[in-house]
Design a protein around this nucleic acid. Structure first.
Lengths: 345, 345
DNA sequence: GGTGCTTACATAAACGATTTAGGAGCTTTA
DNA sequence: TAAAGCTCCTAAATCGTTTATGTAAGCACC
């Protein structure tokens, strides 16, 4: 049943030329390799006629690259990562590269295993959202001449290509926006995740309220998603302890979503009465009532930058050269929830 | 810099044995192939010592399979598909298979091209959410002995493995639930997508209201996501034309989300005053106020069934055998929005 | 002591491409 | 006319595995 696809050799035989010739023509190196016009044409016509598709596995084995890049993120089904993944996928396809998606679950062991497996598969590059504790593996990849671009987070003490959000600046803008709207008692609700991006957001918030001579209200919740009940309680207590609060800045979109629910539970008018803004946009915010303002990461741009750097590296074929650290600005998406005139206090 | 990984041949040389021996031991066929215990041990120790990893590309070339399966869906960043993708990814990894994700955009041409490309890469199987118009290509894949499992939709007139939701039954249950809650004027809002799953949902709704002696209220919106304004207007007109409606059944979660927004725009109390339920669950529904009831697809189970069939087929190595059509039931997730006592009419 | 059967390995041919090195035939040049 | 230089093409090695086939040694058997 399974009829074998013709190989280069089969074609060469039919045309009575060598496989070399067919290969050269196939790869558009005909002229360069001084194959005569007529022969090029003859081969090309035949290739087209039988709609020949080379066996990419064989090509990979010979050339040592696979035209596959991996995109390792915390969770492929996470909205932000899957959107960026989609951008990367599209760009890759245009350049004849494919993308392997993979979830790290922010776990070092799982990530290490995956990196190992992908190396066996001769992938051509890695885009990684690094979990803590994989500095060494990433360094090894780089030293082996494999392109690696970090995304979303960096690894302390490792000079390597990366595409990041300017979290500090983003948090500053977000906080400033609330202040500009007339909010004065701004709570910052974050998680106890020891990673740069969270630190930078916190710093941005603190610096801004400080400069404006306002007080800080900071609540740190556990990172564990299964400690929801605990988080809920903490938010309730926090709100109760600070009745003077007029607005809330959630440090991640996940926090905002569960936070909104909690606020609504405390008092169904609370959400409308507080100024609310989220770091990270979400599809959800557009639908909520009121619509929720957010500082959105530049998804499209991030994907493009990641691939630009990736292809730069691939072209360089492992030659060392200075690393690029791209820090991108997001965009404040102002919706109803952060506009003073919409709150009813 | 890039130090070459040792090959089987290198190892054989060091150990003074043949590559055959090393290969057999590597693949655990030592005993079967009558290699002596001592030698097996010697080879195994060395393999472990240098932490040898075989070149999977070479293996693929030789064996003709890649241990890669593709998961082609409408959009990899869609919540439902990415969740199922995640399940598939996890199962695959456990069996040493990798997953290539790919977005079809529901476009036949794009899908055809992708199928072609994946065949060149010798992928071992396809899980496809088929766009209209690719019957022939899918049939070819199957006839070439390549495992194909359809997901979410079927292709009319093609007998092939598939994992589907029992849309009819789901819509019946959903409608019945509203009726049991005491709702009597139930609107069904759907899209004009000519695909089985939508037809079945409509049928389920109609049959149920008919059996209960209730009137049908059906609104069909354009599928195009960029005709949002038009959809909004249609919903508004529909609601205005039928002030007697006491509940709404949205046929997809995307519809629910934009529909909720529209309802809220019409009248901020409308969402609380109507009974609302959605086909397809969404993360969003849990957070909304009120929380929105939904008929949830069994994501985990779907992923497992897809992979079960896939591995069945892979084991059969292209032998034809009767196709399996799995029809799964979802689960009614009852939240506030569909409970009569929560609506204030 | 020839035949046959294990055991325990090795040899070498694939898989299907890319690519290096080279060769045949022609023209040019000193 | 011999050497050199083109032009156009080919032979064969190579990538790193898997696996069909080969074979040498040992033993049994009549």
């Amino acid at each position: 049943m399974k009829k074998k696809r013709p190989s280069l050799r089969d074609i060469a035989e039919v045309l009575n030329v060598s496989t070399t010739t067919v290969s050269f023509v196939l790869n558009g190196k005909g002229e360069e390799k001084k194959i005569s016009k007529q022969l090029i044409e003859r081969v090309e016509n035949y290739l087209k006629e039988i709609d020949y598709k080379p066996n990419l596995i064989a090509r990979s084995l010979r050339t040592g690259n696979s035209h596959i890049i991996v995109f390792m993120v915390e969770d492929v089904s996470n909205h932000f990562f899957s959107k960026v993944g989609r951008v990367i996928e599209d760009i890759s396809y245009k350049h004849d590269y494919r993308v392997l998606f993979c979830s790290t679950e922010n776990d070092a062991k799982r990530t290490r295993e995956h990196i190992e497996i992908f190396k066996e598969r001769q992938v051509d590059g890695f885009i990684i959202v690094p979990p803590p504790g994989i500095k060494e593996e990433v360094e090894n990849l780089k030293n082996n001449g494999l392109p690696v671009v970090l995304f979303d987070r960096k690894i302390e003490g490792l000079d390597i290509d990366s595409v990041l959000l300017n979290n500090y600046e983003g948090a500053r803008q977000t906080t400033q926006h609330l202040i500009d709207q007339g909010f004065k008692k701004i709570a910052f609700i974050t998680i106890d995740l020891d990673q740069n991006q969270m630190h930078d957001r916190l710093k941005g918030y603190r610096q801004t309220v400080k400069e404006e001579g306002l007080e800080e209200y900071i609540l740190t919740l556990p990172y564990d998603t299964d400690r929801v009940a605990e988080s809920r309680k903490k938010i309730k207590d926090f709100i109760a302890a600070h009745p003077e609060l007029d607005s809330v800045f959630f440090a991640t979109n996940y926090l905002s979503q569960s936070g909104l629910k909690t606020l609504h539970q405390i008092d169904s008018n609370l959400v409308s009465n507080l100024g609310i803004i989220s770091f990270d946009d979400s599809y959800f915010f557009e639908m909520y009532a009121p619509t929720i303002s957010a500082y959105a990461q530049p998804i499209e741009l991030m994907g493009r930058e990641l691939m630009r750097i990736m292809f730069d590296r691939i072209k360089q074929k492992g030659e060392a050269s200075k690393h690029q650290e791209v820090s991108l600005d997001g965009e404040l998406i102002i919706r109803e929830s952060s506009l003073k005139k919409y709150t009813r206090l």
